[in-house]
C-alpha cells in the first residue's frame, strides 16, 4: 500500500485549494478571456444562485444531515414570488414567500431535528411533496411577471451596485455572514458539535433538536433568497425550475470538503467549491468545449477531491479493505 509522506496530509487537506489554483492556471493559459474582469464577474454572477443555496446546505451538512429538498423548494419559492408579484406587489410578495419557504424548512427541521427521522429520506420525500405542491399551486402553468421593466423587483437579479451585480453582493454578504456565524458564534460551535457527535453534544447540555431545526430554517432562508435572485433575473418561472439543483448544490458542498458525516466543513471552502464548479463550466466553454463536458470533469474532480481528503485522514492512499 502506498503510504502518504508526512507532508502529504497537509497538502491533501487543502486539496480543494490546490485543485482550484491548478484549474485557474490551466484555464488562464488556455484562454485569454478567462481571467478578464468581465468574465470573472459573469462567473460570479452565474454562481450566485447555487452559491447561496450551498451556504445553507453546508450548515445542514455540518450539523450531520442532508437536504435534498432545496431543489424543489427553489421551484416553490420562485413560482410563489413571481406569481404573487403581480397579485399583491413585490413588497408583500417577498415576505409572504419567505415565510412560506421557512414553513417548509420548519417541516424538515421538525421531522429531522425533533422526530429524529433520517434526513436523506425525509428530504427526498419532501422533494417530491414540494414539487407536487408547486404544480398544484400553479396548475402546471408557468408564471411570469407582466411589467418586467417597471418593477423594482428587478434589482435583485438584474441590478448592480457600484458596478457590481447585486447577486454577487448578496452571495458575498451572505457568505461572510454565515462564515462569521459558523466560526465565531456559540450557535456555530453547537452546529459543529452536534454534527460531530450528537450524543456527546446532548451530554454537554446542547439542545440538539433545536440546533438541527435551526439549520433547516437557515437552509430554507437561503433557498428563499436564491429564489428572489432567480425570479428577479428571469422575471418568470417554470414550475420545475429547481429540479436537479439539490445534487449540484450538494456537489459544490462536497467539493468544498464538507464531510457528509457531519462536524467538519467550512463556509468559505464551500464558496471555493461553488466557484470551482462555475469556473470549470466557464473555462471549458471558453476553450470551445460543449457545456456538458463540465459534468465529466466534475465527476473526476469530486471523486479525486474527496479521495484525497479521505486518504489524508487514514494516512494511506488506497482503502485497506480486501
Amino acid at each position: 500500500m502506498t503510504r502518504l509522506k508526512a507532508g502529504g496530509p497537509a497538502i491533501a487537506k487543502q486539496g480543494i485549494l490546490v485543485a482550484f489554483i491548478v484549474f485557474m492556471i490551466v484555464f488562464s493559459l488556455m484562454s485569454d478571456r478567462f481571467l478578464s474582469a468581465d468574465n470573472m464577474m459573469s462567473v460570479f454572477r452565474q454562481s450566485a444562485i447555487i452559491g447561496v443555496m450551498a451556504l445553507g446546505v453546508t450548515i445542514v451538512v455540518i450539523g450531520g444531515n442532508l437536504d435534498l429538498s432545496v431543489g424543489s423548494m427553489l421551484s416553490f419559492a420562485t413560482v410563489l414570488v413571481v406569481d404573487l408579484h403581480d397579485k399583491i406587489g413585490p413588497e408583500l410578495a417577498i415576505p409572504v414567500m419567505v415565510l412560506a419557504t421557512l414553513c417548509l424548512g420548519a417541516v424538515n427541521g421538525f421531522l429531522i431535528g425533533v422526530l429524529r427521522l433520517n434526513s436523506l429520506i425525509v428530504t427526498l420525500g419532501m422533494l417530491s411533496v414540494i414539487q407536487g405542491l408547486v404544480l398544484i399551486y400553479s396548475g402546471g402553468q408557468n408564471v411570469d411577471i407582466a411589467d418586467q421593466r417597471g418593477t423594482w423587483f428587478a434589482i435583485f437579479g438584474r441590478g448592480a451596485v457600484f458596478g457590481i451585480a447585486t447577486p454577487i453582493i448578496i452571495f458575498g454578504a451572505l457568505a461572510l455572514l454565515f462564515h462569521v456565524i459558523m466560526s465565531m458564534t456559540a450557535f456555530g460551535r453547537r452546529v459543529y458539535a452536534v454534527g460531530g457527535n450528537p450524543t456527546a453534544s446532548v451530554f454537554s447540555g446542547i439542545p440538539r433538536s433545536q440546533v438541527v431545526f435551526t439549520t433547516y430554517l437557515i437552509s430554507a432562508l437561503c433557498v428563499a433568497i436564491a429564489a428572489i435572485i432567480l425570479g428577479s433575473r428571469v422575471m418568470g418561472s417554470q414550475n420545475t425550475v429547481g429540479q436537479g439543483y439539490e445534487l449540484q448544490v450538494l456537489a459544490a458542498v462536497i467539493l468544498g470538503g464538507t464531510s457528509l458525516l457531519g462536524g467538519a466543513g467550512s463556509i468559505l471552502k464551500t464558496v471555493l467549491g461553488v466557484l470551482m464548479l462555475a469556473f470549470i463550466q466557464n473555462g471549458l466553454i471558453l476553450m470551445g468545449q460543449p457545456y456538458y463536458t463540465q459534468w465529466l470533469v466534475t465527476w473526476v474532480v469530486i471523486i479525486v477531491a474527496v479521495w484525497l481528503d479521505v486518504a489524508a485522514k487514514r494516512g494511506r492512499l488506497f482503502s485497506p479493505i480486501a
Binding site: I254, Y292, W295, L296, T298, I302, I303, A311
Partner: peptide, 29 residues
C-alpha cells in the same frame, strides 16, 4: 468505492453527473 474508500453516495453522485455527461457526448445532445 472499493479502492478509494469514498462513500458510495459521493462516488455515485459524481457518476450521476459524469455518466450523464457521457450520454451527451455520445449522442451530441
Amino acid at each position: 468505492v472499493w479502492k478509494t474508500g469514498v462513500d458510495a453516495f459521493i462516488v455515485t453522485l459524481g457518476a450521476m453527473l459524469g455518466i450523464r455527461g457521457l450520454v451527451f457526448v455520445y449522442t451530441g445532445e
